[in-house]
């Protein structure tokens, strides 16, 4: 198989948003596509509604499971503030795919700090390609509010032309329950079309 270019993907969001499952699917897709794959995440105290970040790396040979700052090809952000927090990890040519959703951290809901008001604008100021995705709307359209992570993976798939659509679907089918399969497949297509 012709070796494809390396891809470094950082998935960020809030604990409980289904980020780990998304990263599992993405890593499996990389493996199916014939890459060496590494993935790193953090459990325990770092969940419980806190900021969560997961690194997924594809390449011919991957050493570090962590991506270096400024080398991320794609930032897949499940939440706006988290996108802004991590946007400086993008490489100069990197793109951010951002779920257009605001979740107040307790530092904001308690009134001690303010949630930045114009995040979409601030993200664009970074100079990177920023794609906002209406994840919840699309997931609802697909038939399951919980399928936001699959919508976002669908959007990412549109940026990875080396990897066949069928490979994504194969992995998604192996990872979701039969009951939710239809909604998840639809969520994937809606995300892919949106990107």
């Amino acid at each position: 198989m012709k070796m494809k270019k390396k891809k470094d993907i950082l998935i960020v969001g809030v604990g409980g948003q289904g980020i780990i499952v998304a990263s599992e699917i993405l890593a499996d897709v990389g493996k199916e596509a014939g890459f060496d794959v590494k993935k790193s995440e953090v459990h325990g105290m770092s969940q419980r509604g806190g900021s969560v970040s997961t690194h997924v790396r594809f390449g011919k040979q991957v050493f570090s499971p962590l991506i270096r700052q400024g080398k991320v090809d794609f930032l897949l952000a499940f939440e706006l503030l988290e996108a802004l927090r991590w946007v400086n990890f993008l490489s100069p040519h990197g793109a951010a795919l951002v779920n257009n959703l605001k979740i107040n951290p307790t530092t904001v809901s308690s009134g001690s700090m303010e949630y930045p008001s114009n995040i979409a604008h601030l993200l664009k100021e970074s100079g990177h390609t920023i794609q906002l995705i209406e994840g919840i709307n699309l997931a609802e359209q697909a038939g399951s509010k919980r399928a936001v992570n699959i919508v976002l993976l669908g959007a990412l798939s549109g940026f990875l032309p080396d990897i066949a659509e069928e490979m994504w679907l194969k992995v998604i089918r192996s990872r979701v329950s039969a009951k939710t399969l239809q909604a998840n497949e639809k969520a994937f297509y809606l995300g892919r079309k949106d990107a």
Partner: peptide
């Protein structure tokens, strides 16, 4: 790496 800094204070998100 310098990267981009948005010029606003980002509220932390503790667990």
């Amino acid at each position: 790496p310098k990267g981009y800094h948005p010029g606003v204070e980002l509220p932390p998100r503790p667990p």
